[in-house]
Write a protein that binds this DNA or RNA. Sequence first.
DNA 1: TGCAATTTTGCAACCGGTTGCAAAAAATGT
DNA 2: ACATTTTTTGCAACCGGTTGCAAAATTGCA
Lengths: 332, 332
Amino acid sequence: MAITLKEVAERAGVSRSAVSRTFTDGASVSFKMRRKVEKAARELGYSPNALASSLTTGRTKLIGLVSNNFHNPIFLQVFDLFTRGLQERGLRPLLVNLTNELDPEHSVRMLQQYSVDGVVVASSTLPPGFSRVFRDAGVPVVHSFGRSTATPQVHVVGIDNVECGRMAARELVSRGYEHVAFLGGPKPATSTQDRYSGFFSEMALHPNIKASYSFAHDYSFDAGRHKMLSLLKENPAQAYFCGDDVLSIGALSAIQDSGYSCPEDIGIIGLNDMEMSGWENINLTTIHQPIQQIVHSSIELMVAMLDDPDRYPESRIFACSIIERGTLRPAP
Amino acid sequence: MAITLKEVAERAGVSRSAVSRTFTDGASVSFKMRRKVEKAARELGYSPNALASSLTTGRTKLIGLVSNNFHNPIFLQVFDLFTRGLQERGLRPLLVNLTNELDPEHSVRMLQQYSVDGVVVASSTLPPGFSRVFRDAGVPVVHSFGRSTATPQVHVVGIDNVECGRMAARELVSRGYEHVAFLGGPKPATSTQDRYSGFFSEMALHPNIKASYSFAHDYSFDAGRHKMLSLLKENPAQAYFCGDDVLSIGALSAIQDSGYSCPEDIGIIGLNDMEMSGWENINLTTIHQPIQQIVHSSIELMVAMLDDPDRYPESRIFACSIIERGTLRPAP
DNA sequence: TGCAATTTTGCAACCGGTTGCAAAAAATGT
DNA sequence: ACATTTTTTGCAACCGGTTGCAAAATTGCA
């Protein structure tokens, strides 16, 4: 068993409170006392038990990091940024994998049992109601990559997916395509819905351009490939705005395998700008989502909420931009 | 603040111990008592504080999941498997990102402060000494994807990298290549060293085949691409065994961009068989590393160690196999 | 040097649970 | 019905810390 406060106190010949105080900054300890205690602690190899102290302080510095997206490579980057960012601030990410978990209440209970100081929900496919459950349970929550609304009920940090849809549509229009299409991710995801509505609101301004749509059942390579293979069998569009990059890459592979070429026969524009999209043998034109900013901002917001749990919910939206690579033909 | 044991006890009109007992299985509680307590708990929305109980039981069910590899897509799968596997057993992964962390002691201290029940180190690039630090601190540790030795000092679960090197060499020999090469990952990584020595021990049996080597400074696309670009400028080999898949894909992109073609001009065999390697527009021939088995076995071992912390250290090695796709030319 | 103001220290209660032990209650046997 | 065994329950101490409060020690100032 590890060394405890009491043992240090005995060895240093002081009270337990004295030891406790030398290890809490801001406490009143004389220089001599501090030295005595630190010496004893060093000799014994003592380090305070964070969980025991959390009992009285009410702070664990544990942050639930909840996600359901463990198949999209962009989330590796998201986890990297979150874990490092949290660690730098002395917070500890307790990772919760929601895959196959149908009952959000279950995760809420679990995280409450561990007295997490806050929860970050990182997902674009979870319904807004999910993060609200945490809020209702009195746990500070930030929904990263969530849907931002004018009247947010929990803190949301992300992008304006409607605007991204418009942006993609404008880009395809400007390239002179006469038949464009939306190939979305999972239909129920808010990100899919918003990109869809943005895309078609823009296309409505161009009634002479044909615009169609379909959905892949997943933000995944296989789903994109599969859907595109079937689209290619019947009158495909000239260019597709795909749900995200990994879906786009699936679609690209389908295009190539079916004897078409991209961007000559069919154009593709993705969304996310994940690292891999820049690889020379993929070279995907895509809309850049500023992941780093989103994560940093989420952490900042979380830290702010730890001080003020009743902070008024806000939406933080970051601008996206088109990264031109090789999967759209040049404007005529 | 959350509901506590005491409040439930008061409402149910019983002692605190009675409440505690109804929530610890295996404890002696009469049916009537259990019902009374559960009713009160339900009405109050009580759920026990896991950290408080850990104080007396000495168990937190927290498992440190330590890694330094947040850039290799294969680790997303690793995290997925670990988090789900641990969750299924009622354990909670506390994620630690070691990127930029030079001092292992620091992480050890941090994990000790949180009284983790055990630590999984998931990395092929961390030195064996790193996981030993945990063992020395009295924390049960499993090193996944680590180097297995005949006399393990901590539990290791992984593959036989030396054998993989041999396997790759044999494969290239059998394909009739006359100049082969090893393009390793970071030189200090044990995985690199072992694959290197296996590769050359096999090639030593074929003195008439030219064999050269070099190292990329990282298991990454950029490192692979960069290294291959420079190799292509001077007398490249006919086929390369690359450090891992992501390195291979970087190398492939360099080959294609330099006007060579794969497998016609230059062959590539990778290692890992990550999901992406099977994508039709990558289609990499590679050595399959049974990640799922490794993770499952690591978790199993960890669970076993929770019951018996002094369990004798063992190495668990899983067989790899070649997955033939399109980046090696057929045997002559 | 003496006295008030300030700082440092220890006591003891508390955070939210668990558990050994003995008393109380229920079950069993005759 | 009573004695005996078994099960259930509550008391109180404990897990490893923190913290309000008052006593003790130190400091400042006349």
